[in-house]
């Protein structure tokens, strides 16, 4: 029970931070000072990059590992 409530608490904080992060993207749109690209005007772009990038990276690496790269520890012995 204790562990579950801990987890709930953690997700709550994460959700709160996510909301803040996205809100910040809208509060501070690109100011035209730095270099800008097509993605600069999508205010939640870096949130998407973070989430999709993270999930994709894990799945791609796991897939590569499973079918190709991962071997037993004594592979070279």
């Amino acid at each position: 029970m204790k562990l579950r409530s801990k987890k709930k608490y953690m997700w709550l904080i994460l959700a709160l931070m996510a909301v803040i992060a996205i809100a910040l993207g809208f509060i501070f749109p690109p100011d035209g000072h730095g270099p800008e690209f097509w993605f600069s005007n999508i205010y939640i772009f870096f949130a998407l990059l973070g989430f999709i990038g993270c999930v994709a990276m894990i799945y791609i690496a796991k897939w590569l590992g499973r079918f190709w790269l991962q071997r037993k520890e004594d592979y070279y012995d």
Binding site: M10, W11, L14, M17, A18, I20, A21, I22, L24, G25, F28, P30, D31, H33, G34, I44, F45, F46, A47, L48, L49, G50, F51, G53, C54, V55, I58
Partner: peptide, 23 residues
């Protein structure tokens, strides 16, 4: 330390964190 750069960093970090705890 421009607002934009901080926002980018925060978005990346927070959503990477969410991805991590999901998977």
């Amino acid at each position: 330390y421009t607002a934009n750069h901080i926002v980018e960093a925060v978005q990346i970090l927070v959503f990477t964190g969410i991805g991590f705890f999901l998977l």
